[in-house]
Design a protein around this nucleic acid. Structure first.
Length: 107
DNA sequence: CAGTTGACGGCCC
DNA sequence: GGGGCCGCCAACT
């Protein structure tokens, strides 16, 4: 029950992302257990078993930019969803300085 | 079982 | 400051 797979942990963290905030892959990976899972996080969201329960669109890169291979409706779609959440964009990139998710359980 | 891939991150030039 | 390369871990073929 506690022996969750890496993917499960990642999904848990992503689901914890509050509305109006964004998190980077490295951030999610760090909260999931290891910061180096950044690539694994991308892979986990790629399978995306629950696109409606896992706000993968709230996950962006360290640069605050959305991934280019966003396959759930188009990269532009992710920006639109984030804006709907109240996140502001600057020249196509999120203002992570103000909207990056402040994790209360930072390691 | 081994090799390659992949929605990234960080360092180097 | 911008662009490119290598590195990390787990999952997929």
């Amino acid at each position: 029950m506690q022996e969750k797979n890496t993917f499960e942990k990642i999904y848990e963290v992503v689901k914890q992302i509050p509305r109006g905030k964004v998190a980077s892959y490295g951030q999610v990976a760090s909260l999931a257990g290891n910061k180096r899972w950044a690539r694994v996080v991308g892979y986990a969201l790629h399978v995306n078993p629950d696109s409606e329960g896992i706000p993968c669109y709230r996950v962006v890169t360290k640069d605050g930019r959305v991934s280019s291979a966003f396959a759930f409706g188009g990269a532009n779609r992710q920006v639109e969803l984030l804006m709907a959440d109240g996140v502001e964009f600057e020249d196509g990139h999120v203002k992570m300085e103000e909207y990056q998710w402040e994790t209360p359980w930072i390691y």
